[in-house]
């Protein structure tokens, strides 16, 4: 079986800081993989390598079994990778339609845009996928006026519109209300239902455990372990996460009262 994405011994350094070390990562066909890890563990760096934003210092990247050299953002997109970033990847002063087609404007060979078509498509997506019903919101509305959940909706729809095979969600529940979060988790299940693959990064272990087939724990730039969610209970996974955060090993002795979380 070929994997949608496979990383072999990928390392990434920023100057003297080694963010990732010898990462082996696989994303299967129609699989949702959750990435867990503390702040600074290297989750973000890893997904930025998958999306072509960062180039690895060493290691190999395979898409559908074929090695890809010099992965860039446009190249990754061609290979079917779409990323739902936080609302931080929206341009607040720009209109909804410009945000949906950001970086991929529909245009003729001379580069002039088909604005009418982009507005029509935006309008259709608003009604069919984003659940905007208010007549105050149009494709010409600037994004800055939207609520957090609405912005997240825009970011997700943007990823879906372009028929991605691999959808990467970078902390998508951050700042969402309970209701919005539930909608989002259903959406991730929908990705799997549609036969696509996803990588889901979140701080919240409950969210990840609920939707992922497999969980990869990253610690200090390395893969600390992998678990199929069907093989491990949530309690066990949480226990292991605490151990790794405290001791750097899944089986290390943990001091009492870790669950009260000495937040630093």
């Amino acid at each position: 079986m070929t994997y949608r994405i496979e990383l072999k011994k990928v390392s990434k350094s920023f100057g003297e800081v080694q963010a990732l070390k010898d990462i082996d990562f696989k994303l299967g066909q129609n699989e949702v993989v959750g990435l867990l890890g503390d702040n600074g563990a290297g989750k973000s760096t890893l997904i930025k390598i998958l999306t072509g934003y960062h180039q690895p210092t060493s290691g190999e990247i395979y898409f559908n079994g074929e090695q890809v050299e010099n992965l860039t953002v446009p190249k990754a997109r061609k290979l079917g990778v779409e990323t739902v970033y936080q609302e931080r990847a929206l341009a607040e002063l720009q209109t909804l339609w410009r945000n949906i087609f950001l970086g991929r404007e529909l245009s003729n060979p001379l580069g002039f845009m088909d604005i009418k078509k982009m507005k029509d498509e935006t309008h259709r997506l608003m009604i069919e996928s984003m659940g905007f019903t208010s007549s105050a919101v149009t494709p010409d509305s600037p994004i800055g006026t939207f609520s957090g959940g609405e912005k997240q909706g825009v970011a997700i729809v943007r990823a879906l519109y372009f028929n991605a095979d691999i959808i990467i969600l970078d902390e998508p529940t951050m700042g969402l209300s309970l209701k919005e979060t539930r909608k989002l988790l259903n959406f991730v299940r929908g990705i799997k239902g549609a036969g696509k693959s996803a990588v889901f990064i979140d701080h919240n272990i409950f969210h990840v455990y609920n939707v992922a087939d497999r969980v990869i724990v990253i610690d200090r730039g390395m893969v600390a372990g992998e678990f199929n969610t069907s093989d491990i209970t949530l309690d066990d996974l949480m226990d292991k996460m605490y151990r790794i955060a405290e001791t750097g090993s899944f089986n290390g002795a943990v001091e009492q009262e870790y669950s009260q979380g000495q937040q630093q």
Binding site: L93, G103, E105
Partner: peptide, 24 residues
Amino acid sequence: NKHRFGSHVFLIGDNENSARLMGI
């Protein structure tokens, strides 16, 4: 206003990080 280049001009002035993440 009508060319994709102009779209990118608006975008990098608005949110350069976003522009980069979107491959501009």
